[in-house]
């Protein structure tokens, strides 16, 4: 059995970011990278499902340039069995359809039983890579999972999914399936120093899919979000703060 986990090595612009070429993009020097937290949670779920089934293999896959290898290594250190990086200059990182199609072109080769993705990335927050990937693979998709467990004989999963308003649904789904996972579904784990060293030596396979359709999306310009609200700070004295709260509560009632 194979479980694939889609990993995004997210890029967060620092407060001091500068822009390049007529504000066409953020200067990459100002981007800080990390493994997306929901994807990391998905990986930990995948490893648990693997260990419970006793015979599955967990493969992490990510789209991007060489920088992404750092994120994939962190996943290998945590316990993924294999890693694949997908690269093509036809892929736009800002377009979830472009990214999901690239993922699909490689994931379909091994046809894994389970594909897990984070619900959303903390840098772009589309909530769409999983659903689009499922569509592209021709698979069913369960979104926004807050619990995943084997249902019976490792042929189906019981999934609890969340909706807005605190409503949740429990459903049972047969494999193969794509599931998107909420951060907070499990405890965050960190790799040991020894595992980090071990992962340094592991291979990351490079896949360069051809004939990908070019993205239809084009960034015209980037700009800073206007801070329409400038926070007015109150003196850091509990008594003054408490007085202010009482005053504001009176006004609001």
């Amino acid at each position: 059995m194979k479980i694939y986990v889609c990993i995004k090595y997210v890029a967060i612009a620092s407060k001091y970011s500068e822009f390049i070429l007529n504000d066409s993009d953020v200067d990459p020097v100002f981007l800080e990278h990390q493994v997306n937290e929901a994807d990391y949670a998905a990986l930990v779920e995948a490893m648990r499902l693997r260990d419970e089934s006793g015979e599955a293999e967990v493969v992490v896959v990510s789209v991007g340039d060489e920088k992404v290898n750092e994120g994939l290594r962190a996943c290998l250190a945590l316990g993924a069995d294999r890693a694949i990086r997908i690269y093509s200059n036809a892929i736009s990182q800002h377009d979830p359809i472009s990214v999901a199609r690239a993922l699909s072109s490689i994931i379909q080769i091994e046809n894994p039983d389970i594909v897990l993705c984070g619900v959303q990335s903390i840098d772009a927050g589309y909530q769409s890579t999983g659903p689009v990937l499922a569509s592209s693979l021709g698979r069913k998709c369960v979104s926004v999972a807050s619990k995943i467990n084997w249902a019976s004989k490792f042929e189906s999963l019981q999934v609890q999914r969340d909706f807005e308003g605190g409503l949740m649904e429990v459903l049972e789904v047969n494999l193969p399936v794509v599931i998107t996972v909420l951060p907070g579904i499990n405890e965050i784990r960190y790799p040991s120093f020894k595992d980090t060293i071990r992962a340094k030596k592991m291979e990351i396979k490079l896949e360069e899919p051809e004939n990908l359709v070019a993205s239809q999306m084009k960034i015209q310009r980037v700009f800073f979000k206007e801070v329409s609200r400038t926070v007015q700070m109150i003196e850091s004295d509990p008594k003054i703060v408490a007085t202010k709260i009482i005053e504001m509560v009176r006004e609001a009632h």
Binding site: I97, G125, Y126, V132, A134, S143, Q216
Partner: peptide
């Protein structure tokens, strides 16, 4: 609307129909 329900299938429509697409 951009919410969990709509986001769980909107991208699939865009992918199948080859639409321009953006959320949030």
């Amino acid at each position: 609307p951009f919410n969990y329900k709509a986001a769980s299938f909107a991208g699939a429509i865009a992918e199948k129909r080859n639409l321009g697409f953006a959320t949030d």
